[in-house]
Design a protein around this nucleic acid. Structure first.
Length: 818
RNA sequence: GGGCGAGUGGCGGAAUAGGCAGACGCCUGGGACUUAAAAUCCCAUGUCUCGUGAGAGGCGUGAGGGUUCGACUCCCUCCUCGCCCACCA
């Protein structure tokens, strides 16, 4: 047998013809396995870096098939989004055309690699039969009060006259023209993911088979913190300002209070205030500061005194109210009690504006320099300068102060999350229209379900005006109010593509259903997803949004599982010449070239063999050649077998045969463990390589009966089939099987064959290996020790000293201490 | 600044409920086959020292300490690199 392109084609056609990967979701008799690979964004053809994802998924799918599961392995396209629209603007090609063209190209690639999918379930998010249901989910959220509209800032490029996504803002500038990005306030749609903050956090504990780091990232992203919200009365007017702090223990060290520039109380503070014009001028300036650089710590802190004071309710001291550019309006209350002695940011600010610094926490009991503080001490310690709370530790003080404040009505315990509501409005064309209508009489009216989908019009001009392109499509914009039948206008923003991808895994179960987004009974059977595979770059957004939408649908009673993905595997990137593979860097390796020259299995094998799949790996062309060599070496066994002359097989297996049989069973065990564990494909493959090497050695050195040789070869291909399906299927055919190798059973191993008659004991003296000894497996410890000490070499090392102690590790080693 | 992860031959990487470091592959060198090349096969391949030699001995998992009969693995201190988040009070 020779491995040629024709073999790839032959078996790909065969798998399609026997519908190997097509699944009936009504099937209940055979246990199910849902293997899901993150669907791609079809922006260009795939390179080997992308291929890793699909190759891993396919190996899992095929392995599980052989383990007797009814495996669902679907594929689709995350097809809405910005790149398509940018192409439209640049090259005057319609986003739909561009997207569909890419889809067919990528599909062709996936097929040429022999990746097995149930293409009958293909899902494309930019087509009406899909986005109808994205809109439907939006309406459900709206119905439950979880979708709402409010004013929010969007990144705005004044030169391109367009709204930019956060990813298009590079270092505070527009990605295309490098103009500094400004903030523009627009009425936009949000999803209330914050309502689910606690559950999203709490349920991370249920995700035992998720990588720890992904859970930690989500945990940090949700960012739960415990603290106290303190009311500060404003001097002279009947108002209070609430401040959230996690460090109540530093309350006596507060020397000023700072507000974010858009804090609602500012207006009141400015009434009859001589500072008014200066302050408003300052605010105006902050407003136009680009968002992105404001996030960088080194950004210069700036502020202005408002002329007003609050009273510290604990000691009645007056604290000046400032407005400062480092206060986030979206977190907590947008107002902060500032403790320069114990917060770096406040410290820098206080130094700059000459505000007092009062130490209230000491690392230890010893006197330290009180008047000469040159840095903020942010750790915990003992309280000083804090009246009756002096001497308490920070954690004691936090408790006592919270209690005290709650009793006196000064403040109350509070919990804050970093998680913000999900802004889903995009002032863009290529996305699912938000199904809302605005009527002068009735106001905001949701599109009735029966009118879905709100079709995205195809005839659109892309004018860089900053308005959504849909605003200029009269037939789309103008409509009638579903309530009063009067004239009304449609929402012209479209949804963030993360909405599309937050439920696609449900649609795969009933992809063509026209009455429902999914059939609950079937979804409840097939989900949660048994194995989800994708890149870590989605660790936060996509995985969090999907969990959110899943929980929402769970609350509606439409599904009965609260988490969508039982197991998650995040694969590493493929690196070339020290950088992530990308077209712009010019370091992409084309899979098409490899496949034409070496076949799909060579690429697949190398991708899986190059290193642990969850880690980044450096692509080396020479490594690929190693896989090619190995494949040919394996295949040659078939030719050898065909011409093999059987020996007079005596009943008893000779020692070569025994060793070969043992190696085979051992390999089955190890490969199975590697696959059942955390997908250690690289070691699984190296073990098969060992078995192949062993087989060649055995053939060379001794008499191996044909029957056994054949069994070994058969096993080798069974073990290889998830990784190199084409040659394995071919081999399976040559070996005389007339069903697909993937319809056969994964090989079993028997401990009995793995047991050894004779074992090798390493002999160490003071922890260093000095000698080896072969002994019968059933030898007793005493016997072994006796034989070890009787060895010439050991005798000469030990001399006439008596060993202090002899350690024996069962069937492994003896350590003699002298 | 915070969080997470990782440092093992010339290279990708094996081996962690503590137990023979360097599996498997690549590169390189030597040999066989060949008119020749490719392909293939065989041998060698961490490093240093001693020895003509067979061989013998030492050192070795980022650095330094510790625990242990025994440490790539556990503990402490430090260094370097990567990723994610980042003024979250």
């Amino acid at each position: 047998m020779n491995y040629t392109k024709e073999i790839d084609k032959k078996w790909q056609d065969y798998w399609r013809s026997i519908r190997l990967f097509n699944v009936d979701t009504k099937e209940r008799a055979v246990k199910k396995y849902y293997c899901l690979v993150m669907f791609p964004y079809p922006s260009s053809e795939l390179h080997v870096g992308h291929a890793r994802n699909y190759v891993i998924g396919d190996a899992v799918t095929r392995y599980k098939l052989m383990r007797g599961f009814n495996v669902l392995s679907p594929m689709g396209w995350d097809a809405f989004g910005l790149p398509a629209e940018n192409q439209a603007i640049k090259h005057k090609i319609h986003p739909k055309e561009w997207t569909l063209k890419n889809i067919s190209r990528i599909k062709e690639q996936l097929n040429s690699w022999g990746i097995g999918y149930d293409w009958d379930r293909e899902v494309t998010t930019c087509l009406p039969n899909y986005y109808k249901w994205t809109q439907w989910i939006f309406l459900k959220l709206y119905e439950k009060g979880l979708a709402y509209r409010k004013e929010a800032f969007a990144n705005w490029c004044p030169s391109c006259k367009t709204v930019l996504a956060n990813e298009q803002v590079i270092g505070g500038n527009c990605e295309r023209c490098s103009t500094p990005v400004e903030q523009k306030k627009l009425k936009q749609w949000f999803l209330k993911i914050t309502n689910y903050a606690e559950r999203l956090l709490e349920d991370l504990k249920l995700l035992e088979d998720w990588p720890q780091r992904v859970k930690i990232m989500q945990d940090n992203w949700i960012g739960k913190s415990y603290g106290v919200e303190i009311k500060f009365p404003v001097k002279g007017i009947k108002e209070t300002i609430d401040c959230f702090t996690t460090r109540v223990d530093t309350i006596f060290g507060a020397t000023f209070l700072a507000l974010s520039w858009d804090h609602p109380i500012i207006e009141k503070l400015m009434e009859n205030n001589p500072y008014r014009s200066k302050v408003l001028e300052f605010i105006e300036r902050l407003k136009n500061q680009p968002l992105a650089p404001r996030l960088i710590e080194s950004f210069e802190k700036e502020g202005i005194f408002t002329g007003r004071y609050v009273i510290n309710p604990m000691n009645n001291k007056e604290l000046p109210i400032w407005i400062a550019n480092y206060i986030l309006s979206e977190y907590g209350t947008g107002a902060i009690m500032c403790v320069p002695a114990h917060d770096k940011r406040d410290f820098i600010f206080a130094k700059k504006y000459n505000l007092p610094i009062v130490e209230v926490i000491r690392k230890d009991n010893f006197n330290s320099e009180t008047d000469n503080i040159n840095d903020a001490y942010e750790g915990e310690g003992l309280l000083v300068n804090s009246q009756q709370f002096n001497g308490l530790t920070s954690s004691e003080a936090k408790e006592k102060l919270a209690e005290y404040m709650e009793k006196k009505g000064i403040g109350k315990r509070a919990i804050n999350y970093k998680l913000r509501d999900w802004l889903i409005s995009r002032q863009r064309y290529w996305g699912a229209p938000i199904p809302i209508i605005y009527c002068d009489k009735c106001g905001e009216v949701p599109v009735p379900e029966k009118d879905l989908p709100v079709m995205l019009p195809e005839e659109v001009e892309f004018l860089p005006t900053g308005q959504s392109p849909l605003t200029y499509v009269e037939e789309f914009l103008n409509t009638t109010c579903p309530k009063c039948k009067g004239k009304a206008k449609r929402e012209t923003d479209t949804m963030d593509t993360f909405v599309d991808s937050s439920w696609y895994f449900l649609r795969y179960i009933s992809p063509r259903n026209e009455n429902l987004p999914f059939v609950s009974d079937d979804v409840n059977y097939w989900l949660p997803v048994d194995q989800y595979i994708g890149g870590v770059e989605h660790a936060i957004l996509h995985l969090m949004y999907s969990r959110f939408i899943n929980k929402f649908l769970y609350d509606l009673g439409l599904i009965n599982f609260s988490e969508p993905f039982k197991r998650l595997f995040t694969q590493g990137m493929i690196i070339k010449d020290g950088a992530k593979m990308s077209k712009s860097k010019g370091n992409v390796v084309s899979p098409d070239y490899i496949i034409n020259k070496y076949g799909a299995d060579t690429m697949r094998l190398y991708i899986l063999f190059m290193g642990p799949s969850e880690k980044d790996a450096e692509w080396q062309d020479e490594g690929l050649l190693g896989s090619w060599r190995f494949i040919n070496r394996v295949i040659r066994l078939l030719d050898i077998l065909e011409e093999y002359k059987d020996t007079d097989s005596v009943k008893e297996l000779n020692s070569t045969e025994q060793a070969l049989l043992r190696k085979m069973h051992l390999t089955i065990r190890e490969v199975t463990l590697d696959l059942e564990g955390n997908f250690q494909f690289n070691t699984a493959i190296s073990r098969i390589m060992e078995l192949v090497n062993h087989t060649y050695k055995a053939l060379e050195e001794g008499v191996v009966r044909k029957e056994l040789f054949r069994e070994v070869v058969d096993t080798i291909f069974l073990l290889l089939s998830p990784f190199t399906p084409h040659i394995s299927e071919e081999a399976n055919c040559i070996l005389g099987y007339n069903t697909s190798i993937f319809k056969r059973k994964w090989p079993d191993f028997s401990e009995e064959y793995i047991k050894e008659q004779e074992i090798d004991i390493a002999i160490l003296v003071n922890g260093k290996v000095k000698e080896h000894l072969k002994i019968p497996a059933n030898a007793s410890q005493k016997e072994i020790e006796k034989r070890v000490l009787a060895l010439d070499k050991i005798k000469s090392i030990v001399g006439d000293r008596t060993p202090k102690k002899v350690f024996y590790v069962d069937k492994k080693l003896v350590n003699i201490v002298i």
